[in-house]
């Protein structure tokens, strides 16, 4: 299993974190690390979510997250073998 991190720019709004972590929970992927912070634009937040999964899982997560209305940007950041 590869560790992977997704960087997101999302609306800084209640419930948004829930929508995103719900996608991980639904598929049974544990979140190893989670970072959320308001950006210089107070309407947006930046998230960094680290999890483990195969290449298939990583691509699926990115595509599924991208469909969320509150998500403006998704970048699959790191893929470190472990």
């Amino acid at each position: 299993m590869d560790r992977f991190t997704v960087e997101l720019i999302v609306s800084n709004h209640y419930g948004v974190l829930n929508r995103i972590t719900g996608l991980y929970a639904r598929r049974g992927y544990n979140i190893d690390s989670l970072y959320v912070n308001e950006t210089e634009n107070p309407e947006k937040s930046r998230m960094l979510i680290t999890s483990k999964g195969s290449e298939y899982i990583q691509t699926q997560m990115v595509h599924q997250i991208r469909k969320l209305h509150d998500v403006q940007k998704v970048i699959l950041m790191t893929q470190i073998n472990r």
């Binding site: 419930g15 829930n18 929508r19 719900g22 639904r26 969320l68 209305h69």
Partner: peptide, 14 residues
């Protein structure tokens, strides 16, 4: 209901 329907809608609003 926003929480309940979250996984089965494209989006929802309160």
């Amino acid at each position: 209901i926003v929480g309940i329907t979250q996984p089965i809608v494209k989006h929802n609003f309160m």
